[in-house]
Design a protein around this nucleic acid. Structure first.
Length: 511
RNA sequence: GGGGCCGUAGCUCAGUGGUUAGAGCAGGGGACUCAUAAUCCCUGGGUCGUGGGUUCGAUCCCCACCGGCCCUACCA
């Protein structure tokens, strides 16, 4: 049996969950649902990143311990994912004991292998940012954000010998051309490696809210170094319940483009240093832009679109869970930036969901209910709709398999369009009850059944609803794709009734 | 400052070293009336950011520029 292990980034708890987080998570969830559908043994991991000075400060500001604070903030993500029908198999928190154990095991291995050494970190520090800059990344010794002169600081740190992995990373990219997708992002990572790698400081003494360094308890690991390892924590690396060999390295990290360097350069090097094969695939996606602008705290501070204006729950309240999922998956191709707008989601909702899909189900169920005694007739073996169905099945499957949800949904919607056109040609509403009418309606119902299956990774609830409406038992994902997604299997057992519209049209709001 | 990405029809986006560059939506015309004033058919049309270069031929390769953006060691 094939296995599929997919992860999202773990989200920094200081942020409130917003549509950007939802974008990553919905994509990962849909991909996981697709692989479950085709029968893969699937594991879907998400979670929260809870260490670092910012978190400790926020906790103090709210008069809580870091643990109490992260209990609250981590929970917000679980709630957001519940609202979006995210079905993760594991939710990891970096403050969990299992994570401490894996991180310490992993980094001890790196240490034992000679890739960690102690040195003095000299950095330029910005008091406003509370962070270090390199001379190159500064604006001629000034903070690029605040413009103030950076002060030179020194700290005893443990360093990771990243520079030792340049050749091995290049070899990895050479022998695994699919390590990073899409290709433009792969090239970006490759260019960075070719530009030369420097060793990196991976511990801090000035911070206490982190994973202690086992061989030097005055230090904690810097937040990124423990964060990346979460992907291994979840498979039990270095612990009694170790399932690493089951899920690793044939796994997939879905990440946003801004953390490409961590995942495509440091992380494989860290794995190599620990004596572990790197993850096999990193799928990079772009950003959602609001009116062409990045979603950011800065923008909110400047009075632009606020993140809280587009919290996931506000969208699901307005459009429904599956419509939001559909929009996030359909609107932009994974890997490129996309535009997020209220107009955009409204347009997708009305055209793709209400007019095409919802209306198709409504018109078919109406005719069947009134002219076929409410029982779904069987489809024809050689219907002219069959070719369109086959095409949609193949193209949809190929697209999901190559991490391209937008193309998958486009292919699925091709069958919806073909079915609407088919009904126009045959005009069953002009037919009298009988064999001809039954055949047409059976074919249409079969197409709808297939659409429900094909759309189920993106819209699990609506797909199940359609399944029920056309008189079928269970849900579209009960049976493996290879068996269920073949033309001619429709056999409605239950009565077919029209019911309420799946997607009531949304009137344009004049602003 | 350094590295990188993007710039394609009104809008949102696909796409390719080679005959007339695509889809959806919006717009225009027609058909139909089962359906959520939905659907179906036809249709408009864009110097593929600008200027060079390589090539028999470039929107796609190279260089420069303009514009937008990302990374530069905490932001999907």
């Amino acid at each position: 049996m094939a296995r599929f292990y997919i992860t999202t980034p773990i989200y920094y708890v200081n942020d409130a969950p917003h549509v950007g987080h939802a974008y990553s998570t919905v994509n990962a969830d849909a991909l996981a649902r697709w692989h479950r559908l085709i029968g893969d043994d699937t594991k879907f991991l998400t979670g929260t990143d809870e260490h670092g000075q910012k978190v400790a400060d926020a906790a103090a500001h709210n008069s809580m311990s870091p643990r109490e604070w992260t209990d609250v903030t981590s929970q917000r993500f679980r709630e957001a994912w519940a609202a979006l029908d995210i079905r993760y198999d594991d939710f990891i928190r970096t403050t969990e004991p299992r994570h401490y154990e894996t991180v310490q095991k992993f980094l001890t291995a790196v240490h034992d292998n000679g890739y960690i050494y102690k040195d003095t970190y000299q950095g330029l520090y910005c008091v406003s940012c509370e962070d270090y800059y390199t001379l190159e990344s500064s604006d001629e010794g000034r903070c690029p954000i605040h413009g103030r002169v950076l002060t030179e600081m020194r700290e005893e740190n443990w360093f990771f010998r990243l520079s030792a992995f340049e050749d091995r990373l290049l070899a990895l990219y050479e022998t695994h051309p699919q390590f990073v997708t899409p290709e433009t992002k792969r090239n970006e990572a490759l260019a960075f490696i070719k530009g030369g790698l420097r060793d990196i400081s991976i511990t801090r003494t000035s911070i206490s809210w982190g994973v202690p360094v086992p061989w030097d308890p005055d230090h904690v690991f810097y937040v990124w170094y423990d964060a990346l390892i979460n992907y291994l924590t979840a498979v039990g690396y270095g612990r009694e319940d170790d399932e690493t060999s089951t899920w690793w390295p044939h796994s997939h990290h879905l990440i946003g483009k801004e953390i490409l360097r961590f995942h495509c350069v440091w992380w494989p090097a860290m794995c190599m240093a620990a004596g572990l094969e790197p993850v096999s695939h990193v799928q990079v996606h772009g950003w959602l832009l609001v009116g062409g602008q990045k979603l950011s705290k800065t923008m909110a501070a400047e009075g632009g679109v606020k993140l809280t204006d587009i919290a996931p729950v506000m969208l699901t309240d307005e459009f429904g869970v599956d419509a939001v999922r559909y929009y996030l998956l359909r609107e932009t191709s994974l890997g490129n930036d996309g535009d997020f707008s209220h107009e955009g989601i409204t347009a997708r909702y009305n055209t793709d969901l209400a007019n095409n899909l919802g209306n198709l189900v409504a018109r078919v169920t109406t005719i069947v209910a009134s002219k076929c005694d409410g029982r779904g007739p069987a489809p024809e073996v050689d219907s002219e709709l069959r070719d369109a169905a086959q095409t949609a099945i193949i193209d949809t499957a190929l697209a999901w398999n190559r991490f391209a949800p937008s193309f998958a949904l486009e292919a699925t919607w091709g069958l919806i369009g073909a079915t609407n056109a088919y009904l126009e040609r045959r005009a069953p509403w002009k037919m009298s009850p009988g064999e001809e009418l039954d055949a047409v309606m059976g074919n249409a119902l079969e197409a709808i059944r297939l659409v429900a299956i094909l759309a189920s990774p993106a819209m699990p609830a609506v797909s199940a609803n359609i399944w029920w409406r056309i008189g079928l038992e269970g849900t579209p994902s009960d049976e493996e794709f290879a068996q269920s997604a073949t033309w001619g299997r429709y056999r409605g057992a239950g009565l077919i009734e029209k019911g309420q519209p799946l997607f009531p049209r949304i009137k344009a709001v004049v602003e």
